[in-house]
């Protein structure tokens, strides 16, 4: 296809970059996440499983749905003991699991500091429903996956297209719990999607 002539306007720079001169990506991310009513838990790689065990201790494994694959024996054992796993061979039964689950547990591909957003690329069978149907969405966010803003996610997608690589059939930019202001402009948190969103931020250790 022919390339069209275009006089692109030079892209303006978001103020998130000035915030990042004095604060870390993690600090800016947390500040944005608080604004959109996400609950925040900070932990470390070492303490992660303990943190999660504590978080879901009152919820039976069949009510915790996860679609995380880490290829790590300790993780796999924990998932086996504490959660129900999104299992493609079970077909639409997974959706029923998701619908009845209290918690959906996901691992984000990256996160956006400017808006407190987590990005989930739904490929390799992660399941669209896991972050959508349960009442609580718990999403794991490694500190090193936080990037400044939407622009970089979009550039990454453009790059994939230019290299002729397919992109996932579904990509979700999720920012806090679902909400609506359709009744008298009053903000209701929790409508069709999760009623609560918990961000578990994982510091890498040196």
């Amino acid at each position: 296809m022919t390339k069209l002539q275009r006089n692109k306007v030079e892209l303006p720079i978001s103020s998130v970059y000035s915030a990042l001169e004095t604060n870390s990506l993690k600090e800016v991310f947390i500040e944005s996440a608080r604004l959109i009513r996400a609950d925040i838990i900070e932990t470390t790689q070492t303490n992660l499983l303990d943190t999660l065990t504590e978080l879901i201790k009152e919820i039976p494994p069949e009510k915790v749905l996860s679609s995380i694959e880490r290829g790590n024996t300790e993780w796999d054992a924990w998932l086996q003991a504490n959660t129900t796993t999104w299992n493609p061979t079970l077909g639409s039964k997974n959706i029923q699991h998701a619908e009845q689950a209290t918690v959906g547990l996901t691992y984000c591909d990256h996160a956006l500091a400017e808006s407190g957003t987590v990005v989930l690329l739904n490929e390799n069978n992660k399941g669209r429903s896991v972050s959508l149907l349960p009442e609580i969405h718990v999403v794991l966010i490694p500190t090193n996956s936080i990037i400044p803003r939407l622009q970089k996610s979009m550039t990454m997608l453009s790059e994939r297209i230019k290299q002729g690589k397919p992109i996932p059939t579904c990509i979700n930019f999720i920012t806090g719990p679902s909400n609506s202001a359709d009744i008298e402009s009053y903000l209701v948190v929790g409508v069709h999607g999760p009623l609560r969103t918990i961000y578990v931020i994982i510091d890498e250790e040196t």
Binding site: G116, F173, T175, S178
Partner: peptide, 12 residues
């Protein structure tokens, strides 16, 4: 700054 969901769908 962004809505709760921005969803990108490519094919079935």
């Amino acid at each position: 700054r962004i809505t709760s969901y921005v969803t990108l769908l490519t094919g079935p």
